[in-house]
Design a binder for these strands. Sequence first.
DNA 1: CGCATACGCGCC
DNA 2: AAACGGCGCGTTTGCG
Length: 484
Amino acid sequence: MLIDFNLKEKLKELKKSGKKLPGGYFDLGIAYWMINPDEKEYTPEHLAEQFLKKNKATNKELYNYATKKLKEYKLEKLFYEVEMPLVNILADMELKGIKINAKGLKDLDKKLEKELSGLVKKIYKEAGETFNINSPKQLSRVLFEKLRIDIKGVKKTRTGAISTDVETLNLIKDKHAIAKYLLDYRELFKLQSTYVKPLQELIGKDGRVHTTYIQTGTATGRLSSQNPNLQNIPIGTGWATELRKAFVAEKGYKLVSFDYSQIELRVLASLSGDPKMIEAFNDDLDIHKLTAANVFNVSLEEVAPEMRRLAKTLNFGVVYGMGAIAFAKTSGLNFGEAKKFIEEYFNDFKKIKEWQEETKAQARTFGYVTNLNGRRRWLLRATSMFRGEAAEAERAAINMPVQGLAADIIKIAMVTIFEEIKKRKWDEKVRMLLTIHDELLFEISEDIIKEAGTAISKLMESAYELEVPLKVTMKAGKSWGEVQ
DNA sequence: CGCATACGCGCC
DNA sequence: AAACGGCGCGTTTGCG
């Protein structure tokens, strides 16, 4: 058995040179990540220091300690049956990469360039001077000192400066024409500088971009993606779709996305055992509409779009431990109304409140929380004497078992799908490319899309048994822009 | 000059 | 004043 660090990189090297893979392997970094997912680094030096209290340790010593802890924490199944197989799967996904239409990106770049130069001119004209729009410091001076725009309701940054973020710009939109231009500028500049420009640089000789998945990158069990991060590609607006259209399928293939519908809320319903929410998912109802009907005390037919929107914000916020202040801010309600809606929510879904309180108590009592598979997160600050610190740990505590189980489910699905691909000898026809928390993106040969799509959907839906069904929606297209 | 920090923002 | 969980990354700014 191969016992070492960064086995994904080693497997990639072996695959590239066509060599045989080891029969079994044990990634030390991932093992320690499961023991404590909040370490910022998982290097041999750091782990020896942190866990063995030594300057140096051999892999054997690190292995012995890790296996002991994995057993003690009941993490062996998750480690050996999910995380380790995933190393090989991620290696494949990274090597494969996703095809990019370079010409499309270049054209988009030019379009953005043109739009941006127009906006810059308008902004300078409104400001009566030229300055660096990308500098919050300079922008703040122009907006609030030179132009003297009213700062009522505008928040300050952590260091006390007047904020210039989107929320602020929206607030002053009606007070000065410059704000609208700045909002447009921000959107386009972000798109160009963060996505369109870097992506072009990262296209390989094979015409594809190859992200790197970090298996030890989050404290909840999720994966992260870097160089480039393909888990935060813009979606929704016209410009975002233009960008997504540059992610394409190879000739003879289509991109096919498989999305878990409401996976975190389903997990929360299941964990809490809340009868109303479980029934809603069992009946395949519109969960936000159902929530709205409950918090507004109306029938499903009487739910107006605005009511549903508020309920949706509530549903998402609850998973994160959102308070009245934050709910008020994101919903546009005043503090009192926001507080009432949250109370009403927990009154309607009592078991969710109970589950959250139990989970917080666990964090305080044991200093950690776990999810159904034993995935663990240490939260020693739950008993901090600083109220803010303790509250922050409590919010992390109620979120981790939910986010972490959702992460496990998609990882389990990836492992079973990978096995199915091998079994059916679909290696060249069904390529798993991306994993984006609750979504898997494949490149599938056009002749078997139907058959493979059905198989993949089924495997995703049966990856884990909850108190409610898992639901997957599938979409196929020539580009990523077409599957959203 | 490189590096860390602040700010801001894209996604789930 | 803020207090919504989890990430990665671009630009600016100030420090050594």
